[in-house]
Amino acid sequence: MALEVSYDVIQVTLLSLYVSGCATILGSAIGIPLGALIGLKEFGGKGLLKTITYTMYGFPPVVSGLAIYYLFSRAGPLGSFGILFTPTAMILAETLLVIPLTTGITIASVAEVDRSVKETVKSLGTTPRQSVLTVMREAWVGLVMAAMIGFGRCIAEVGAAYMVGGNIKGETRVLTTVIMLETRQGHFDYALGLGLVLIVVAMAVFFFLRLLQEKELL
């Protein structure tokens, strides 16, 4: 019985990593460039867009789950893809939650880059695109932070993950949803143990991200 349990735990942990990793990467790939553009370009409505982005930090995860559920339910517009109750749906729901975070933190990070850096770079003859890329590289520490916070959001997510994933044994169970299941059944010690596993796994990821962040991109 103990052996069976740890076999499951490995699978659940790997799925947690997979779902959270994909959502973080997707959310960063969308949010970081978006944040750089919003942060560096001048346009009408920029202030409003920033406020909306920051407001979404507080977007309730259960609503994200519900939105994805409605979209991909058989009765919904994208039901025929059959994504509901698969890890893909979980990734999508978590990506929605990550995007405001990565966007917002990137906006602040690029704004923080010294104005004279931006002007120097421009005076050296960059195209607008080259300017943005260089400023982003100068803001590297902040950008990795954005990804870190995105990952933290994902690995801790339970409500949306349960709703669109269904917590199906062997298919869509991640550490957080299993913790919820075990807690519901009163197996508090086991749930705490899984919580510890989650923290250890997260620590490994953050260690790697921290190395990435401190790496001098010389």
Binding site: D114, V117, V121, T134, R137, E138, E216, L217, L218
Partner: peptide, 12 residues
Amino acid sequence: MILQKPMVLNRS
């Protein structure tokens, strides 16, 4: 253009 305050990028 060269300014009063040296401004280098965070690179080698």
